[in-house]
């Protein structure tokens, strides 16, 4: 169990680093989502199911949805701009 926890903790660091260095925003959001899920498992191991359930619903769920929406909105604006330029 201890080993499993250490692996999870290590992968947390890996996820955090790759969030910093990934070029593509969509990828980094997905990595961030997995970061939240790993965090949620660690909290389960640390005997705090309240936190785990909240993090799963909020960190991996709602926060990621908000990130995706932001990205989608930004792409929509970019696309619109592109089409305008083509017309012009």
């Amino acid at each position: 169990m201890r080993l499993f926890e250490c692996i999870l903790l290590f992968s947390l660091i890996v996820c955090a680093m790759s969030v910093a260095f990934t070029k593509d925003l969509l990828t980094s959001i997905i990595i961030f989502m997995s970061y939240s899920l790993i965090m949620c498992i660690i909290w389960m191991i640390l005997q705090s199911p309240d936190l785990a359930i909240t993090e799963a619903a909020v960190g991996a769920g709602v926060t990621s949805i908000l990130f995706f929406l932001t990205l989608k909105k930004i792409r929509a604006i970019r696309k619109e701009e592109g089409s305008e330029q083509e017309e012009g």
Binding site: I29, M39, W43, L51, G59, F67, L71
Partner: peptide, 20 residues
């Protein structure tokens, strides 16, 4: 967007500290 993710990572790290 990266900055905001960094903020989230910072916050969750503190929470991990507290929870442990």
């Amino acid at each position: 967007i990266k900055k905001i993710m960094g903020m989230n990572i910072m916050d969750t790290a503190t929470y991990l500290f507290l929870a442990s």
